[in-house]
Each structure stands twice: as C-alpha cells, then as structure tokens.
Design a protein around this nucleic acid. Structure first.
Lengths: 125, 125, 125, 125
DNA sequence: GTGGTCTAGACCACC
DNA sequence: GTGGTCTAGACCACG
C-alpha cells in the first residue's frame, strides 16, 4: 500500500508519512482503523523498523494517528487536522508563487499555466 | 550585493546561486560582467571559500556564468538560458499542483488562491 | 463497573487499578467484599486475563485488596491505607509544583489557578 | 550543564529536552546562542549521538531551537513559545487536580497544601 | 505479539 | 567540523 521511490531525494520516513497523510486525509483509511505494526510494515517494505517507527512518531505528533504502546497504531479522528492541512498546502504554494517575479513571470502567466495544468495534467510517466 | 540569511534552513550555496540567478535573469548583471573572485566574495560575506566555489560551479553548470581559468568568472549570455528558466519555475510549480488532490483541493480553489495571492502579496498570516 | 478507555495512552492495567483504588477508597466497595475473578473480569471486559492479573497484583501490593489463594480476591481493610493514599496524591502534586519555577510561574499564579480550577472545573479550553 | 538521572524512569532524550526547555525559557541560554554539537554533547554525557539528535529534533519541532545542517543548533527566539509553555504546565497541573475527588480531597485541603508547599519547599535531597 | 528507547556504526550533504 | 538519515541489533514494558 505504501510505495517507496528510492530515486526520490526525500528521506524514506517522509515519503511514508506523506503517503499516510494522504490516505488518511482522503478518508481511505478510516478513524480507529489499525495500521500495520512497525515490524510488519518494515518487513513488507524491506526497510529498517526504526525508520517506520520514526514515520509513525511523526504521524502521531502531527495528529494523524494515535499510538498505544503494546497495542498498535490507529488512525486518529482528523476532523481537527483537515483545515490546517489545507493551510499547509497553501503555504507551500505561496512559497513558490512568491518567487515568480524572480523568473520574470507575471500574475497572468502563472494563472494561465495553472489553468492549463488542471485541464491537461499530462502526468504520463 | 548578495545577502545571506544565516537562519535560513537552505544551504548557503543555494542562497547564493538563487540570488545570482535572479540578478542575471533580470538583467541587473549584464553579460560578460565580471563576478567578484571566489576569495574576495568569501571575505566580503565572511563565509568559507568552498561555499562560494560550490555556488559558482553550480552557476556555471546551469549556464548562468562562464569561468576562464585563472581569470575569473563572468556572466554568461543568458539568451539561451531564459526560456529554460521559466520551464524550471513551471516544473517546480507543477510539482506542487500535482499534489492538490491529496489535500482535497479542487482546481477552482487553487486558482482562487493564486488570484488572491497576487492581489495581496503581503504576508497576511 | 470498571470502564476502559481504549484510546487512553495509559496501560490498561493502570486504568483498572486506578478505578479500583477510587472505588475502595471512597467506600463504594466495602472491606471483605469479593472482587470478580480474574477470568470472569477478563471475559466481561474482553481483555487479556494477564492484564487483570497484573492489576490485581498491583492492588494487593498496595494494600487495597488481599487474595486468598484458590478462593479469590477481597477488598482489604483500608483504614491503614487511607492516610498513605492522600500522601500519594500530595507527592504527585508536589512533583509538579516543584517544576513551577522552570515555567516562570510564581506561588501566586499557581494558587490563583488552583482556586479557579475548583470553581470552574469544566474544560474551558 | 545537562544532567542525567539514570534512576529517572523518563527516557534520556526527554530529560535532555526538559532541561534545555527550562534553560531557554528562563533566559539562561540566549537566542541565537549555539548549542553544543550533537557529537560533542554525546561525548560529554557519554551517551549515544542518536539520543542527542532525537532530543534536539524534539526541541526544534517545539520551537525552542533551530537547526542548520552543517552549521549547528541555535537557541530560537522563544517569544512566541512562552505563553504556550505556561499552558502546558497548567494542563499538567489540571490533570492532577482533576483527580482530587478520587482521593477524598477537598478544594480547601488542596489549596492549603499548595500554600504550605511554597512556604517550605523542603526539597532537602 | 505490540510500541518505544537506546547503542553502535555507517553514509551523505554542507561548511 | 556540522546536522540528518538509515541499518542492525538489543532491551523493556505492555497485552
């Protein structure tokens, strides 16, 4: 269910958390659903358990899951999280938009590009 | 001319290249203009010469400057660069736009946000 | 009679002992009253008998119950326990009060807060 | 400067973060002051660097320090943090106060004890 | 079986 | 030198 891209420059544990954050935000994983155990997921993905542990800890502190020692990790109730999640996205987006002038790009060009992007997502790869 | 934010999380050499890329793209530095020497700039910015060297190498690799061994570094003719520069920006932007669905964000919401951003570029937060 | 909060981060056996300690201290369970058997309680609460066993052992160790081998567990005479119970509470409390200076909090602020707490015990947050 | 209590049940990395949080909150460590390097502190305290790393990461995500890869860890500007720090303390305190009734303790007894505590801190150990 | 902490040792990017 | 990630393997408390 979780896929690693070894050519991705981001750390493994970040790749894992991001995928879980999506799955949980989109409701594909339901509240109180049990996640695979640290060790089991480590085996499935053939990486070290410590890396999974780190990913799960990160997810817990960000409110996506809750962790019960000796009992497993469970999807949290994310109602409180969702709004801040969109903010997170927008602040990433703003970071880029802010740089547009350095690239001699105008508001018009950017908006044109965004519109185009969503009409033809052309993510063929 | 180059300003470092020492509390910025990005590597120093990246901060330097980005500023030079802007100055060159915007035409503030003209083609064939001489850049400060590695040693001199290192002294001026009071950072390690290795860091400057790394920044200059990166700029050369990306075609923004050319270096004449023993004679210094010079702004390149950016005609060939400019189009690819916009592409670079757009591909960064696309990288983010691609993730919108994971945040339950629609094309409409994104475009709305982008329009808003350019009308009120200030940090409202 | 005993309620578990499965999403509580504390170990289950602690949740059980705390509730029994309250019930016994408050006199809701009378001295020499028989407790449910380990097995029966485990079934009722649908948790592992080991967990109940651990809770009962702890209660016995702390003098809240006594166990007659083969005949079950019984509420102890708590006369001897009660004073030490308050001490237990106060030493927990002291542990926190001791840290007040690390939070730049004065005696006055703490007392103010405690008074307020007991007037409006509800979760105002 | 940082002391470990091996008989303390709390994890080492928590003991470290708590001490740093105090030092920083109290202004004993000033903003932008450099912390000992991960490796150096590990040697000084004769524990594993990973444990220090974990402590520093925790401090960073809680806003007490900022971390610059290749350049070290520095005390953050904690103006934004301080108010939430007091809240943290009070919510710990409330957690205990909430349990008073289970110990047959009245508001009056608690307040009496708190007053007494601050007059005679009797932390002789 | 579960999560969590810790050690030891390696490797990488950055300065 | 610096921080950061990852592996391997151990130990503990909890269920």
């Amino acid at each position: 269910m979780i896929l690693l891209d070894l050519s991705d420059k981001r750390p493994l544990y970040i790749q894992i958390t991001e995928q879980y954050k999506s799955l949980i935000s989109l409701g594909i994983l339901k509240p109180d659903e049990k996640l695979p155990s640290v060790r089991q997921l480590a085996i499935d993905m053939s990486i070290n358990p410590n890396t999974i542990q780190k990913a799960y800890s990160e997810l817990e502190r960000d409110g996506y899951i809750y962790s019960l020692s000796g009992r497993g990790n469970y999807v949290a109730n994310i109602e409180k999280i969702l709004p801040s999640r969109k903010n997170e996205y927008f602040s990433n987006l703003d970071e880029i938009l802010k740089k547009a002038p350095h690239y001699l790009l105008s508001k018009k060009e950017i908006i044109e590009h965004v519109k185009l992007f969503f009409n033809e997502p052309d993510d063929v790869s």
